[in-house]
Nucleic acid binder design. Structure first.
Length: 208
DNA sequence: TGCCTGATTGCCT
DNA sequence: GGCAATCAGGCAA
């Protein structure tokens, strides 16, 4: 079941936690890839200087101020992109950064796109997973409940050809979520807005 | 294992 | 003009 628009209308931290275990599905011309979300970060409109929207709407962050349930993909460090899920009502700039996936399907395609083969290295970082999933800036602003890029509820994805990874049937439970400070930011570096599945080997780095 | 650095470019001050 | 929600590789311990 594809997560409906209503899923994204809850508050941003709730969405960041609820996305853990869900499946990100991208149908590209090269084929389908699927990854299970295992690490997220929340970026809040108010009281969070690290949030792109903190200083108001600009050309770059405009999508964050649009309706929830859409992709916010931005260019960073001259060579990478990061994928976010827009949350909060229209006019409020909040989003959830997806930081790591557990590869589920289309793994050979992911490996080709990344130029590496180790499973735990395919999607273990925000820049890595965008490459592995074949997402581009063209998807910036696209809805996540219809179209080529969708997010499916944990436990609900009908695995292709009956193939399921061992972890695919193991969605998040409250006790299995760990939180801590976000990664790679200087401002508001102490806020505990990073969430990941406890002991999951596919996170970008283990929580401190 | 872990720290440090270079690569590379669009956007904002 | 400087920075940025990153990554891979090099080098030291």
């Amino acid at each position: 079941m594809i997560l409906p628009l209503s899923f994204y209308k809850k508050d941003t931290v709730t969405v960041a936690r609820a996305l853990l275990g869900a499946f990100l599905v991208h149908d590209s011309p090269q084929g389908r890839t699927i990854g299970r979300i295992v690490e997220t970060e929340a970026y809040l409109y108010r009281g969070d200087p690290a949030c792109h929207a903190h200083r108001g709407k600009t050309k770059r962050n405009a999508v964050m101020f649009g309706p929830p349930g859409h992709a916010y993909i931005y260019f960073i460090y001259g060579m990478y992109h990061c994928f976010n899920v827009v949350t909060g009502p229209e006019g409020v700039g909040e989003a959830v950064l997806v930081r790591a996936l557990e590869p589920v399907a289309g793994i050979p395609l992911m490996a080709r796109r990344r130029g590496v083969t180790a499973l735990h290295n395919l999607c273990s970082g925000p820049g890595k997973l965008v490459l592995a999933m074949g997402m581009t800036k063209e998807l910036n602003g696209c809805p996540l409940f219809r179209g080529p890029l969708t997010i499916w509820k944990a436990h609900s994805f009908p695995a292709p050809r009956g193939q399921v990874t061992a972890e695919a049937g193991c969605p998040w439970r409250p006790g299995r979520i760990e939180s801590g400070p976000r990664i790679g930011i200087r401002k508001a570096a102490d806020l505990p807005l990073r969430f990941c599945l406890k002991d999951n080997p596919f996170v970008s780095r283990p929580p401190r």
